[in-house]
C-alpha cells in the first residue's frame, strides 16, 4: 500500500512537472517570435581524416523568416548567405550560388537551421522526428531525420538554447564526423 502510494507520488512527481513543462509547441512559438539578430559563432568540425578538429569563427545574422547570413572570419574569410531557396557562398573572390534542391545534403542542413530559427514546426517535422528535453531556460531539441535521403548523410542534429535563443547546433554525420556550432548572441542590436 505504502509502496503504491509512494509509486503514485513518484508518478505524480514525474508527471506534474512534465505537464507544466516546456513543450515543442511553446518552444516553436517562442522561436517564431524571435525576429532576428546577430551572434558570434565558433564552429568545430571533427573529421576522422584529420587528427585535429577544423575550427572556424565568425559572425552570423538572422532575419526572419528565411534569410541567414554566416560570415566566417577565420581560417579563411567566407560569406554564406541563405536567402529563400538559394545559398550563395563568396570566398576568395569567387561567388557560388547553389539552388538548394540540387544538393540534398545542403538542404538537410538548411531545413534544420531555418526551421528551428523560424520556429516552423511543420517544416521541421516534414524531415525530422523531434524530441525536446530540458527547461525553457535550457532546452535541447534533438532531431532525427525521417527521410532516408537525409539520414544517409546526417544521423542526428542537436540544437540547444535558452528561451527563444539558439545557442548551439551539433550535427552528427553518418560517417561519424561531427560538427559543433556554438553561438553567442551579440546583445543590444
Amino acid at each position: 500500500m505504502n509502496k503504491q502510494i509512494l509509486f503514485g507520488l513518484l508518478l505524480a512527481a514525474l508527471t506534474l512537472p512534465a505537464s507544466a513543462a516546456f513543450d515543442i509547441g511553446q518552444l516553436m512559438t517562442g522561436l517564431a517570435a524571435h525576429k532576428g539578430g546577430r551572434a558570434k559563432f565558433v564552429e568545430k568540425k571533427y573529421i576522422s581524416l584529420l587528427d585535429k578538429p577544423v575550427v572556424a569563427t565568425g559572425e552570423m545574422s538572422y532575419s526572419a523568416p528565411d534569410r541567414l547570413e554566416k560570415r566566417t572570419l577565420t581560417p579563411k574569410p567566407e560569406t554564406l548567405v541563405l536567402d529563400k531557396d538559394k545559398v550563395s557562398i563568396e570566398r576568395e573572390q569567387q561567388k557560388l550560388t547553389i539552388s538548394l534542391a540540387n544538393q540534398p545534403e545542403a538542404l538537410a542542413f538548411v531545413d534544420s537551421i531555418r526551421g528551428t530559427l523560424s520556429g516552423n514546426r511543420a517544416a521541421l517535422e516534414k524531415n525530422y522526428a523531434l524530441h525536446l528535453s530540458g527547461t525553457e531556460e535550457k532546452w535541447v531539441l534533438t532531431m532525427l531525420p525521417s527521410d532516408q535521403r537525409i539520414s544517409a548523410v546526417i544521423l542526428r542534429i542537436v540544437v540547444t538554447g535558452s528561451r527563444n535563443q539558439v545557442l548551439g547546433i551539433e550535427y552528427l554525420q553518418a560517417d561519424g564526423d561531427r560538427s559543433v556550432l556554438t553561438i553567442e548572441p551579440i546583445t543590444g542590436k
Binding site: 581524416l49 584529420l50 577544423v54 566566417t72 579563411k76 570566398r91 542542413f109
Partner: peptide, 30 residues
C-alpha cells in the same frame, strides 16, 4: 583544402580529400 573543410563547400568535397588534397577539382568547378 583543409581550411576549406570549415566551409559548407568543403563539406561536399570532404570525401575527395584523400584523392585530391591539392583541390584541383575545386579549382576546376570554380
Amino acid at each position: 583544402s583543409i581550411d576549406r573543410l570549415a566551409s559548407p563547400v568543403g563539406m561536399m568535397l570532404k570525401n575527395l580529400l584523400p584523392r585530391d588534397p591539392t583541390g584541383e577539382l575545386v579549382a576546376l568547378l570554380g
